[in-house]
């Protein structure tokens, strides 16, 4: 297939439980054009027909078929140098986003890669101007952000990179979630971790 990396990342997203059957969406920027997954596409089974091309700035016939989150993807491309965006619904990250304004990993890999991940909140969560206006500026500062109760948006030069941030986020949140369940303070092993919330 022509859009191999879409198929690869879509399959992995579903296989690792970061999206439900028809959830999530992927896009890449090609100059002033955007390639994005079709509205309602099953990301685990993408074919070339599921990849819709439309304008970065202007609508054209493609936009009717594009994922309803196109508005968020476009805002991200206009406000950052991202060349790829992954939107997913990672369970633990979304769960924790209901309680916290920022997610600060305690595991070593998450500490290296993420330091902290901001949470933004909107009443209208899906494909809304509000989400677009909240998410894009945060992604000028961070590689991944969580919309409260909804899901993650991650950026990269490639889909695989945005997928990496998404996957690292959920791995860290799985651990954070368990730590919360156990309810006891952790034995700190890192230096300077008290500063992570300032990242």
């Amino acid at each position: 297939m022509r859009y191999e990396e879409f198929a690869l990342v879509g399959r992995d997203l579903f296989a690792s439980g970061l999206i439900s059957s028809h959830g999530g969406n992927l896009s890449v920027r090609m100059g002033d054009r955007v390639l994005i997954t079709r509205r309602g596409a099953m990301l685990a089974h993408l074919t070339d027909e599921d990849i819709i091309e439309t304008g970065l700035h202007k609508n054209d016939s493609g936009v009717a078929l594009a994922s309803s989150e196109i508005i968020v993807h476009r805002a991200i491309y206009r406000q950052t140098n991202a060349l790829a965006v992954v939107h997913a619904h990672p369970l633990c990250a979304v769960t924790l986003s209901l309680y916290q304004d920022t997610l600060v990993p305690v595991d070593s890999e998450g500490s290296y890669l993420l330091h902290q991940v901001p949470v933004v909140a909107a009443a209208m969560t899906i494909g809304s101007e509000e989400v677009a206006s909240l998410v894009a500026p945060v992604l000028a500062s961070y590689r991944v952000v969580v919309v409260r109760g909804h899901g993650s948006f991650a950026v990269g030069q490639f889909l695989e990179e945005a997928w990496q941030w998404t996957s690292a986020l959920e791995a860290s949140c799985q651990i954070l979630y368990r730590v919360k369940l156990l309810g006891q303070p952790i034995k700190e092993y890192r230096q300077q971790s008290e500063n992570y919330h300032t990242w």
Partner: peptide, 11 residues
């Protein structure tokens, strides 16, 4: 697809 990568690196 090379242009986008080159541009990000130039910046």
């Amino acid at each position: 697809g090379k242009a986008g990568l080159v541009i990000v690196m130039q910046h």
